[in-house]
Design a protein around this nucleic acid. Structure first.
Lengths: 180, 180
DNA sequence: TGCGTTAATGCAACTTTTTTGCGTTAAGGA
DNA sequence: TCCTTAACGCAAAAAAGTTGCATTAACGCA
């Protein structure tokens, strides 16, 4: 499973994991999520399907694992000197990224796997950390928790449950509210 | 598919749909979501698996269909005379329902299927309608959209991405904010 | 009511995916 | 270097998913 303790992470295991992750990312672009299968990933990665089934359980958990890792290494936070502007920029980029087809798929996979594994909690922690570091620039007059509740949550709700887009205007309205 | 136009809804089709839905609900309680399979549902419902594959496509869409229907016929909204109290009661019950294991599974299924079908949008519409009817009691001094953004969204974010519970205290804090 | 049309289902053969047992490989430790 | 064993490859078996064709029964129409 994706959250298991890797008991023997040296050489081979790490090599296979990297190969599999790469295969998933490539195939997601080439054939799309709907057509993706475990045997297909295995063939591309040069391993037997049984390896994937044993390590990740099923396609959902494998995709969740890849997605969770993809969610981590965003680019470094830009610092314009104006923390409010930085927060605006971060929010708009976040909304944009999550609204994309790939972003929605990642959300879906992470949520699906999260019912048992709590992998989504890690993604949240990462987002909190990014927001907190921006808020710190403003002397913590605004806390990350408020941003999560009043900005991030409504954006994700839009993406997941609403046909209307989480566009710039929407983000701006949410930010105006939380920034007093 | 769940959102297809039912061209011939009379007699048999309706009977099969009811039988299948019932089978899903029963089996969800008996064996749980993880062990549920299409052939299992088919056997319980007394139909062939191919019927399910043809009508619903796969297990995810079938479960999303059942979940979406389950989300609709809640009990009638209680009217205590105090619309703010009604909103509080509705919110707490909603959070409670969605926080349960079954609730989280339903959210997961609806979201998963929603990437293509937009079935989640229907669920949102229903929630909006319920909230709006409560807000109407207060002369629309509060609009449903605000409640969605500032109360429902953070609750669902908690359930989906956070280990901490969406408990009474949390709901209360959100409501206090939106009620000025 | 009776009849024709055809959507929807049942059945069975077939393909693909998933599981499982067992032998082999290679990482980590003594 | 050797030993232990986690992780993998392979292949057989089980299960799930697909598809073509025959049958059933809903719906429209006279």
């Amino acid at each position: 499973m994706s959250d298991r303790v890797v008991c023997r992470p040296g050489g081979r295991s790490a090599r296979i994991q990297a190969s599999v992750h790469q295969a998933v990312e490539d195939l997601l672009r080439e054939v799309g999520r709907a057509e993706l299968t475990v045997p297909m990933v295995a063939a591309r990665a040069g391993v037997t399907p049984s390896t994937l089934y044993r390590r990740w359980g099923d396609l959902t958990h494998l995709l969740a694992d890849v997605s969770a890792q993809r969610l981590q290494p965003d680019q470094a936070l830009p610092d314009s000197g104006d923390w409010r502007a930085d927060l605006r920029a971060w929010t708009e980029q976040y909304a944009d990224e999550m609204s994309s087809k790939l972003g929605r798929q990642m959300l879906r996979d992470v949520i699906s796997a999260s019912v048992e594994t709590g992998i989504a909690n890690n993604c949240r922690a990462f987002v909190v950390q990014q927001i907190a570091s921006i808020c710190a620039r403003g002397g913590d007059t605004l806390d990350a928790e408020s941003v999560i509740e009043q900005v991030v949550s409504p954006i994700l709700y839009r993406i997941l449950f609403d046909d209307r887009p989480a566009d710039r205007a929407f983000c701006g309205r949410l930010l105006d509210r939380v920034l007093d």
